[in-house]
């Protein structure tokens, strides 16, 4: 049976049971145990992770590989055991986005990705090198044709 939540940002939304993601440990510092990913019509690489428990709580999250092609997620043994996911590449991975004005200055948290597998989600600490908490989201997106990018 679908859940109806009256979200602060988007008004009432019907969430199908299978779209609900259980977060056994919530998000770090934010809590919440159930969230849903809200897709958009444009197929944009950034979607909203909406809390089911708190209608005012939602975070924009991105598929990291759309923005950081060589992004890597490395979990410690204890973290992999905790979430029961040994290969993050086999799960869905999202990174939280810090929205700023201007939008060109948005950053993503590559250090604490969200790993979703089989309807459950965990925010984990990424042990990989070069995984900053505030990575400029648009730094690696192709700039208007330059000699280098055309080559």
């Amino acid at each position: 049976m679908p859940l109806t939540i009256d979200t602060t940002r988007f008004g009432p939304l019907e969430i199908e049971g299978e779209a609900v993601i259980e977060f056994p440990a919530g998000l770090i510092g934010l809590g919440g145990s159930r969230y849903a990913l809200l897709a958009n019509d444009e197929g944009a690489a950034i979607v909203w992770l909406q809390s089911i428990d708190d209608p005012s709580l939602a975070l924009p999250v991105a598929n990291p590989w759309q923005f950081f092609t060589d992004y890597e997620v490395k979990l410690s043994d204890s973290e992999a055991k905790r979430i029961g996911v040994t290969d993050p590449a086999a799960a869905d991975v999202y990174v939280t986005v810090r929205a700023t004005q201007p939008v060109e200055d948005c950053t993503a948290n590559l250090r604490a990705p969200i790993v979703v597998s089989a309807g459950r989600g965990w925010q984990v600490i990424n042990e990989a090198d070069n995984a900053p908490m505030r990575a400029p989201l648009f730094a690696n997106v192709a700039q208007p044709a330059t000699a280098e990018s055309a080559a």
């Binding site: 940002r9 934010l30 975070l59 924009p60 939280t96 929205a99």
Partner: peptide, 14 residues
């Protein structure tokens, strides 16, 4: 970072 992300307004993202 999570709290900052959660402050995003509806029209700041798709």
């Amino acid at each position: 970072e999570n709290e900052a992300s959660a402050r995003a307004e509806a029209d700041s993202m798709p």
